[in-house]
């Protein structure tokens, strides 16, 4: 398998590896893929509730080099964006940036899914928290 220099770079020096407190109200967690398929990505975002800006992002990935690079790149890209902006990230942009070959496109799809899943999880927390706070009064 041929890897682009960018994939090799992300593989050797992955950005933003780690975990955020998944129980935190400000953190959204996306876990996509399955071990049987050879790819699992966990992508987490920490969002500022006032500005909706993603202030931090972390990932961990079980998968091939392209999967690791796609998720590493995704964390770089979402950081500093608002959640709505982050939702605009398309897998095709990841493919282009990393020069992924056709057999590795699913890695970029998974990274896009991971971003969406993390945002979805964060949004769910915000929706739940609002009425709960009202009731508590």
């Amino acid at each position: 398998m041929a890897y682009s220099d960018k994939v090799l770079d992300h593989y050797s020096n992955p950005r933003n590896v780690g975990s955020l407190d998944k129980s935190s109200q400000e953190v959204g967690t996306g876990l996509v893929g399955a071990p049987e398929c050879g790819d699992v990505m966990k992508l987490q975002i920490k969002v500022n509730p006032q500005t909706n800006i993603i202030e931090d992002a972390k990932f961990k990935t079980f998968g091939c080099g392209s999967a690791i690079a796609s998720s590493s790149l995704a964390t770089e890209w979402v950081k500093g964006k608002t959640v709505d902006e982050a939702l605009q990230i398309k897998n095709t942009e990841i493919v282009k940036e990393l020069s992924l070959p056709p057999v590795k496109i699913h890695c970029s799809v998974l990274a896009e899914d991971a971003i969406r899943a993390a945002i979805h999880d964060w949004k769910k927390k915000q929706d739940v928290s609002k009425p709960a706070t009202v009731e508590a009064r």
Partner: peptide
């Protein structure tokens, strides 16, 4: 493994 969500 440090990079693997499954290991974690």
């Amino acid at each position: 493994r440090e990079l693997s969500p499954l290991y974690e």
